[in-house]
């Protein structure tokens, strides 16, 4: 399994063969606050890199979720739809958002590694 990569929109992505698992980062959940609603992309739908792929709502506001790579959705995590608070408690493991079949692995190249992401999220202050 490859290393975890990160996007500027605060998503994490883990690639296993052609299958990418995508979720939002701990840092993102800290910015969002308590998550009370999750909407995920439908299985079988196609999503394009940096395109809309779901919504999370905190007690304060709604935020779009973007996919860091293009592909076809093959699985979504219903357990976070039923219990959105899971996203706050374990965002980078159990509370993954969706899995997709990646269409272009080179899209991974522009993403950040953990160290770069930590620097990015600290510097951007968001």
């Amino acid at each position: 399994m490859s290393e975890v990569k990160f996007s500027k929109e605060h998503e994490w992505i883990k690639l296993d063969g052609d299958t990418a698992t995508i979720g939002i980062t701990q840092h993102a959940t800290e910015m969002l606050g308590d998550i009370v609603f999750v909407e995920l992309p439908e299985i079988g739908s196609s999503v394009a890199k940096d395109g809309n792929a779901g919504v999370v709502e905190s007690t304060k506001a709604a935020s779009d979720i973007y996919t860091p790579v293009s592909g076809e959705i093959i699985e979504n995590n219903q357990s976070i739809v039923d219990d959105p608070a899971k996203v706050n408690s374990d965002p980078e493991n159990e509370a993954w958002f969706f899995k997709l079949k990646i269409t272009n692995k080179s899209e991974m190249d522009s993403l950040m590694n953990k160290e770069e992401y930590e620097k990015f999220s600290k510097e951007s202050g968001n």
Binding site: G33, D34, V36, S58, T59, K60, A85, N88
Partner: peptide, 12 residues
Amino acid sequence: PIQYSKGIIEEH
């Protein structure tokens, strides 16, 4: 303050 460290739901 919009919230403190424990978050809105805990505060509520």
